Amino acid sequence: MSKPLLILFGTFSGNSESCAEKAASVARQRGYDPVLENMMDSTADVLMQFDTALLITSTYGDGDPPDGTENFYEQVVNHPRFRLEHLRYSVLALGDSCYDRFCQCGKDYDEALEAHGATRFHTRVDCDIDYEDPCDAWIEGVFAILAEERLLAA
């Protein structure tokens, strides 16, 4: 029986979506049932429906969420009573180190989820313009931890 896994992405140029699709492909190969959602089309309530979530987001300009994802961002980052004690998560942040607030959107999600009681099971990775290798390494790290946890639970 495959285990559900939420993969949320927020993208401006398509890079975060590409990473999310890679993560979904690896998830299927490893026996998960990934649910891939664009933050633009989602609400924070989706986080209540899963035990494990991967958030992959770019940062637009100097620290802003990607266009169209502002509603999701506000719901997660600025909602004071949003509780997620059941949720385990990891964040992949994409950005451009030319900006002072490099990967700020991903950093904000990471801090907000922890503040809402969720448990970070893999360290956030911040990617610069050359994001492919760090993205691949993050995906491998995430699924190595999940595989280890499955073995321990068996």
Rank of each mutant, 00 (worst) to 15 (best):
L146G: 04
C103S: 12
S13T: 14
H116C: 11
F102C: 07
E70Q: 13
E114P: 01
E74K: 08
F72T: 06
W138C: 06
Q104V: 05
Q104T: 03
R30S: 10
D41I: 02
A44N: 04
L87P: 04
D51N: 11
V77T: 11
D108V: 10
G31Y: 13
D41P: 02
D128I: 00
G10F: 03
L87W: 10
V91G: 01
A147M: 08
C135E: 07
E111L: 14
E132M: 05
I56E: 00
G117N: 09
N78W: 15
Y131M: 02
A137M: 14
R124F: 03
M40T: 11
A112S: 14
G14A: 09
C19Y: 04
D108H: 14
N15L: 00
A44I: 10
I56R: 04
F72Y: 13
D67W: 10
M40F: 00
R150D: 13
M48P: 03
R101M: 09
L54Y: 05
E148D: 14
D62L: 10
Y32K: 02
Y89E: 05
F9K: 04
E37R: 12
P34Y: 03
A20Q: 06
L36F: 06
D64E: 15
P65N: 06
R88K: 15
S90F: 09
D126P: 01
L92A: 07
E132F: 08
R124I: 14
P134W: 09
R30M: 15
G106R: 07
R81C: 05
D41S: 14
S97T: 11
P134Y: 07
V142T: 12
A115T: 11
D96N: 15
A20V: 03
V125N: 06
L146I: 09
V142P: 02
F121E: 13
E17M: 07
F12I: 06
V76Q: 01
A153K: 13
E114S: 15
A112W: 13
M48K: 14
E149T: 02
H86K: 14
E111V: 10
D100M: 10
E111P: 04
R83N: 12
A115H: 12
A153S: 13
L8M: 11
E132T: 12
D33S: 11
G10H: 01
A118G: 14
F9L: 02
A53D: 01
L54T: 04
G141C: 02
L94R: 06
N78A: 05
T52A: 01
S16I: 00
A153L: 15
T123G: 08
A24D: 08
M48E: 10
E17A: 04
P65T: 03
P65M: 09
D126V: 00
R150G: 09
A154R: 12
Q49Y: 05
Y73W: 12
A144W: 01
L87I: 03
D126E: 13
G106E: 06
V125H: 07
F102Y: 13
V77K: 05
L87V: 09
L8I: 02
D136K: 03
I145E: 11
D51C: 04
D51P: 03
L55K: 08
L152D: 06
F102T: 05
D62I: 08
F121P: 12
L151Q: 12
C103P: 09
V125A: 08
D41R: 06
